[in-house]
Every structure is written in C-alpha cells, then in structure tokens.
Amino acid sequence: MTPDEWAIVRLTLLVGGVAVAATLPLAFALALLLARGRFPGKLLVDGLVHLPLVVPPVVTGWVLLLAFAPAGPLGRLLDAWFGTSVLFRWTGAAIAAGVMALPLMVRAIRLSIEAVDRRLEQAARTLGAGPWRAFGTVTLPLSLPGVLAAAVLGFARAIGEFGATITFVSAVPGETETLPLAIYSALQRPGGEAIVWRLSAISVALALVALVASEALARRAGRGTHVL
C-alpha cells in the first residue's frame, strides 16, 4: 500500500475505533434500559434509538450538521466549554459513525442481556449480593460475549459509514476522508480505477474480519455457556 492509502486506512480505523469506544457505554445503558426498564415512553425511546437505522443516512448527517453547526445547540455548547468544533474534523466523522452504529449495538447488547436468566441474579441476591453486585458479577459477565459482538458489529458499521459522514463533515483528505469516502472520490477522478480496486479490497477484508469475529462471539453467547 502507498503511504496515502495507509493514511486513509489509519484514519478509518481511528474514526471507527473512537466511534465504537465512545458509543459502547451509551449503547449498553440504552440496552439495559430497554431490556429491563418499565417506564412510560419506552416505545418512543426504542424508536428514537432505531431511527438512524431506518432514516436515510443523509438526513441523519443533516440533523447532525444542524446540531453541531456554530449556531446549533450542541455546536454552541462545544464552543463555549471547549472552544472547539467537530465540523470538518475527524471527531465529527467519529460522531457520525457512532450515531449510525448505535442502533445495531443496542440491539446486540439488548438481546444478550435478555438472554441471561434473571433467576441467576435472584440466586445472587439470596447469597447476600446487593442489586449492583448481583448485576456486575452475574448478568454483566454472562452478557459480555454479546457486548463484544456489538462492538465488532458497530466497528464494521462505523468504518463503512458514508452518507451521514459526507453530509456532516464532508470529505476532507487526511481529516474526514475515510475508506468509503476515498473510494467515492477516486471514482470521480479519471484513472482512479486502480485505487478504487485496492481500497475496495481493503474495505472488504476489514469488514469480513469484523463480521466473522462478531458471528463467532454471538454463537458463543447463544450457547448460554461461557468459556473464559
């Protein structure tokens, strides 16, 4: 690979990695809320979480642009607190990737939490564990394969993100131009086919590795047993 291609791959992995790392705690909290919570408006929360999955990515990107623009609610906060902006920055690309990956991650984690027999937590309680210890020592470790699967799946989704990213932070080479955006811009250039071939092959390889890993983890979780 040429240094330019390496830089694109590195940026893509950075954006995907940061997106997943930042989204995972939020996804876990939402998954727990949806799996265990009973509250009015649960259906609405469920729907909002899943919106990025069903809305055209361009719309998601546009909403992010409105929110993070200098005059937007989140853009103003970022500027006031940190004196910074995520527009046209790799951090913005990571936000777009994270938002798009969120519903997939919530679904995977929610299923794995729901698959844990709650009666095991009851057993832990009768053995003297408070609700938090019971959750942390029983449900959390037993749902961990699902959490890992969610991370891998979310990562695969994040490194493939295109529509929301290009709408939100545009395709700035070296800053927001991840693999899919680089492939698209190479396609627009005469004589860019060779680059398209190579970058596409890299994308397929990355996605395949992530999917196979995710499937393996999900199968292990599905057996209901846990190999440490």
Partner: peptide, 11 residues
C-alpha cells in the same frame, strides 16, 4: 436458598 433448578452460576 437451594433452588430446585440449582441456579449455579454457569460462568
């Protein structure tokens, strides 16, 4: 409490 289905922690 000894449960009928034992409820041993599988992990």
């Amino acid at each position: 409490y000894v449960f009928q289905e034992t409820r041993l922690f599988p992990h």
